[in-house]
Amino acid sequence: MSSRLPVFLSLLAWALFWELSTRIAGSTMFPPLSAIIITIGDVVQLKSFQTALVVTARAFAIGLGLALVVGILVGALMGRFDTADRILNVWVNIFISAPLTAVVPALMPLLGIGETTVVATVFLFAVWVIIIDTREGIRGVSPSLVEMARSNGATRWQMFRKILLPSAMPEVMTGVRLGVVRGVKGVIIGQIIIALVGFGALFETYLQTFQMTRFWALVLVVFSLGFVLVEIVGLLERRLTLHAKSR
């Protein structure tokens, strides 16, 4: 991405377009950007927003945490053992591109119409890409490194902890970053389908009471939070994979 004009100018132009077109059209569904931005200040001070943020963050953190642990372990298993790979590969490849939105309603009677279902949705959205990328990473570990460790008498756990995981780190971190992107989508999708929890409930309320400016303000806040999160993970990814260049 090397353009003569900086990226933020592009976004500024689109913001301006939004502002002008909504002012001209005068649609109630799409309020002008300036009004939305002003409303953001109000929305973030609402008790309901802060509660929703805590609930959402908690569900996201738990779901993603589970996805990380399961994803990396299963991915490593598939990377190291052909039998595990042959049995699981089909399913991982089905679920990574399946319409998992359809599964959310099935979670509700199983796990209750509440936070647990949202946690499960985050997990379901995030875990597959982490598995696939970890598997790739582990498969790509240099055989001579593995032989070196084995000839020096490394135990299974040492092999995993000291050789496989660090070697596979670039791919694992890519998986984690993509998992975070998918997890953010999962937490929002879970909440709007359930419509009773966190931001999902707020979106629903604003729509039903026709508070469009607040609705859009919330959308922008959620997008921004998602972006900050992904950026942080991106930074972490670069920090953790510095050595990869010199491999």
Partner: peptide, 26 residues
């Protein structure tokens, strides 16, 4: 590229599902 790349990245990364209730509403 300048005009479309940034919004496309946003559309890809952001949880766009959030605005689907609005669209069904509208």
């Amino acid at each position: 590229e300048w005009a479309l790349f940034p919004p496309m990245i946003i559309l890809q990364t952001a949880p766009m599902a959030a605005i689907i209730p609005l669209i069904t509403y509208a």
